[in-house]
Design a protein around this nucleic acid. Structure first.
Length: 269
DNA sequence: TACTCTGTTGAATA
DNA sequence: TTATTCAACAGAGT
């Protein structure tokens, strides 16, 4: 379940290949992750190109190569990037492998919910430039968040925060963590959030994103004790604040854990 | 063995 | 237009 910090972790895996040329490319062209991408052309173009830099935006990754080549990757649910030894033989789930002289850069995804994009041009592709404001950037303002809530008034907070068009990079556990910290019931309709709660929520979003980025890793084991994260997976998980057994229900179509005591339901008006 | 659950995106449906 | 449901896929767990 790669969310923004985990995506950042995977992006960095490929950093070891920065400045080096791709010698050959292997791929499973029929794999779903390529969607409409012309794999033949992608392999041909990337062969000989230098990996110049990379960045993440929410759950999206963009790798820039010489000769105006851009490679966009999305890990979906089970995708991962890793580095293997030179001459690596791709396994069943290794859909795209960039072979360099001293290593192989591997994109692997058993369930094929991930996605590869490909762009040629002097400027970044449109699907990259048009991404919503990053949550840790100055462009993500309380006002912007409020107007997003206004556009999705009837949706539960859980569902709204999962919308990548408003909160790029948030995933299931991060949203639960955020709502727990902001002491808001995940089922609360976006329209019922008061301006005070909204401000609090905005601060918590930035806090959780920054902390998650600081403890970048595949397992999030770097997250401080006392976070909901450590409790929310098990059926016997308890609220780190008051020790109550967490409620577990499907909200917004996703398994959600919250504390019925410190995240009280709003009464009907 | 057969079933359920996992979690993200986007298409289909309401 | 907006909200909900479901399919895509593979594997781990019961």
């Amino acid at each position: 379940m790669p969310e923004l910090a985990e995506v950042e972790y995977y992006r960095k895996q490929w950093d070891r290949g920065l400045g080096s040329a791709v010698e050959t490319v292997s791929s499973h062209p029929a794999s779903r992750i390529f969607r409409a991408v012309p794999t033949k052309e992608l392999c041909k173009k990337l062969s000989g190109a230098l990996l110049l830099n990379s960045e993440t935006h929410g759950k999206q990754m963009l790798f820039r190569f010489s000769s105006d080549i851009w490679l966009g990757l999305h890990l979906g649910m089970t995708g991962e990037l890793r580095v293997e030894k030179p001459g690596f033989q791709p396994g069943k789930h290794d859909h795209l492998v960039l072979h360099q002289q001293h290593r192989a850069l591997v994109f692997s995804d058993p369930r094929q919910f991930g996605r590869v994009r490909f762009h040629l041009g002097t400027k970044p592709p449109e699907w990259w430039s048009n991404l919503p404001a990053a949550l840790t950037s100055s462009a993500f303002t309380p006002g912007r968040m409020k107007s997003f809530f206004d556009r999705h008034r009837r949706l539960s907070l859980k569902a709204v925060l999962l919308l990548q068009s408003g909160f790029p990079g948030l995933g299931n556990w991060m949203v639960d963590e955020i709502l727990w910290r902001a002491r808001l019931d995940p089922r609360t309709p976006a329209a019922r959030v008061t301006s005070g709660e909204s401000t609090r929520l905005w601060r918590v979003i930035r806090f959780v994103c920054r902390q998650a980025m600081k403890s970048v890793g595949r397992t999030y084991s770097g997250l401080p004790a006392g976070w909901l994260f450590h409790e929310r997976w098990s059926a016997t998980g308890r609220c780190p604040r008051d020790g109550r057994i967490l409620v577990r229900e499907t909200v917004g179509g996703r398994t959600t854990a919250w504390c019925g005591v410190c995240q009280p339901a709003k009464r009907a008006q």
